[in-house]
Each structure stands twice: as structure tokens, then as C-alpha cells.
Simulated scan of single mutants.
Amino acid sequence: MSIRILYVEDDKNFAATVLEFLELMGLICDYADNGLQGVTLAKKNQYDVIVTDITMPKLDGRQMCQELRLQGIDTPILMLSALHELDDKLAGFDCGADDYLTKPFELKELVARIKTLSKRRSGNAQKLVIKDLALELNLGEHLAFREGVQLKLTPSGWKILEVIARAYPNCVDRQMLEHVIWGDDIPDSEALKVHIHRLRQRVDKPFSEPLLHIVNGGAVLKRANL
């Protein structure tokens, strides 16, 4: 299976050399030349690994990493940097990076590290925050908050809310929701409706505006007027 990566680097000449080698080795690469564009692409697309420089315009690599982890994106992140002191590396890990490689480096080592990271997801994404809905999910402790108020969710309710929040602002279809709860052992057709109804009671009932909406048998998070 092909490995798809996002490479974020403001030095376009250096990036061209790296990208050429990665693609020669069979990797599928998207490229961004600043951290802000990197965040946009990482939220829009599904990557196996994100490789980023640190010193960049708009958002540097650490700020980009923090933003992605805040959004609940658990793609492994490899930082590349000429900053080689131990404190620099620790700062990168504190921001949510999974690996750190100092420049200059051997391109073969970069590929080896990417392949290793691509086999897992990062454990550094602890929060998923949807600011315009005032909704926050603590992924590590399975806690959800709306407008700072904790939502009392069942285990199934948490699973549904997490997958819908990760897909925001897109709709999650019925088949995906059923698979998230029951895997391949799906019960009768009314079971999902019952679970979503209960979740809507927890997410929307205490508040003036509903956020959880049913669309073509699936579900989506959005404000009622959007």
C-alpha cells in the first residue's frame, strides 16, 4: 500500500530535492510551503505521515503541530530542523511531534523513519476542539463539553459524537455510524435511530440551539441557521 505524506517546508529548492527522492521511493507527496497551508491540507486530506520544518512563515512547525493536535488530528508528525540542541528536540515533542530528525540528514534515513511512523497513529492528539460550535472533546478521557458544560454520554454516544466531530463539517453516513458502534454485527434498522435520539438529548436538550442533525439517515454537526 502506498504511503501518503504531507511535506511542509518553506525552502522550495530544498523541498524539491526531498520530494523528488520521496516520490522516487514510491511515496505519494503533497507539499505546502508554510504552516498555515499545512494545517489546511492536513485537515482536508488523510495522510499517513506529516513531515515538517520548524522555521517557517505564517505558522512555524511547532505552532502547526499544536494546532493539528488541538483539532484532534492523530497523523504522526516528523519534524526536520537544523535546530539540534536537546531543548529544541524536547520543544518539538512537547508540541505533539512523534519524531525529530536534524538537518543535514540522509534521505534514506528519512524514508525509513516515514515508513516506521506510517504503521501507527499518534497518541499526542488529546483534544478535538470545534471552536465555532463551542464543542470540545477530550480524546484521552472520553469526555465531551459544550460551552464548558460536560455532556453525560453513554459509551455508544461517545463513539457516535467522536466520529461526527472528526468529520466536521461533513456529514457521516449511516453505514459508517453503524460500523463504529457494532462493527460487522449490525442489529435491526431502528437501533441506530435510538442511539442518535439519545445522543441528541445529551448534546442539544440543555441548550437553546441544536447542533446534531440527521441528514439522509446519517448525522452532522452544524448550527441550525447554516
Results as ranks from 00 to 15, higher is better:
residue 71 Q to T: 02
residue 158 W to A: 02
residue 193 K to Q: 14
residue 82 A to H: 12
residue 46 Q to E: 14
residue 14 F to E: 06
residue 82 A to F: 05
residue 141 E to R: 15
residue 142 H to F: 04
residue 147 E to Q: 14
residue 84 H to T: 05
residue 188 D to P: 01
residue 101 L to K: 07
residue 191 A to Y: 08
residue 217 G to S: 08
residue 198 R to C: 02
residue 137 L to W: 05
residue 224 A to G: 00
residue 188 D to V: 06
residue 115 K to P: 00
residue 137 L to Y: 09
residue 109 E to T: 12
residue 36 L to P: 00
residue 98 D to H: 11
residue 100 Y to V: 02
residue 222 K to C: 01
residue 85 E to C: 10
residue 25 M to T: 05
residue 77 I to D: 04
residue 222 K to T: 01
residue 120 R to V: 06
residue 149 V to I: 07
residue 192 L to R: 08
residue 94 D to M: 15
residue 12 K to N: 00
residue 80 L to R: 04
residue 177 L to R: 02
residue 174 R to G: 01
residue 172 V to R: 05
residue 214 I to T: 08
residue 195 H to L: 09
residue 214 I to P: 07
residue 194 V to N: 06
residue 144 A to T: 00
residue 180 V to W: 02
residue 78 L to R: 08
residue 44 K to N: 02
residue 36 L to H: 05
residue 19 L to N: 14
residue 219 A to S: 13
residue 96 G to M: 07
residue 9 E to N: 12
residue 211 L to A: 02
residue 133 L to M: 07
residue 17 T to Q: 09
residue 103 K to R: 15
residue 4 R to Y: 06
residue 198 R to A: 10
residue 131 K to T: 09
residue 120 R to Y: 01
residue 156 S to K: 12
residue 31 Y to L: 15
residue 52 T to D: 09
residue 70 L to A: 10
residue 211 L to K: 11
residue 120 R to W: 05
residue 133 L to F: 14
residue 213 H to Y: 10
residue 156 S to T: 10
residue 208 S to K: 08
residue 213 H to S: 04
residue 162 E to A: 15
residue 198 R to L: 08
residue 217 G to C: 10
residue 58 K to S: 02
residue 220 V to T: 09
residue 50 I to K: 06
residue 167 A to H: 03
residue 39 V to H: 07
residue 74 D to W: 08
residue 218 G to A: 10
residue 9 E to G: 01
residue 4 R to M: 06
residue 199 L to F: 13
residue 180 V to R: 09
residue 123 G to T: 03
residue 33 D to Y: 09
residue 6 L to S: 04
residue 19 L to Y: 03
residue 176 M to G: 01
residue 22 L to R: 05
residue 71 Q to V: 00
residue 15 A to T: 10
residue 55 T to H: 15
residue 168 Y to H: 12
residue 79 M to F: 13
residue 136 E to S: 12
residue 201 Q to L: 15
residue 222 K to Y: 01
residue 215 V to N: 09
residue 222 K to P: 01
residue 33 D to L: 06
residue 16 A to W: 10
residue 176 M to V: 10
residue 22 L to Q: 07
residue 30 D to W: 08
residue 164 I to E: 02
residue 101 L to M: 12
residue 149 V to L: 14
residue 119 K to C: 11
residue 216 N to T: 06
residue 220 V to K: 11
residue 187 P to G: 03
residue 84 H to S: 14
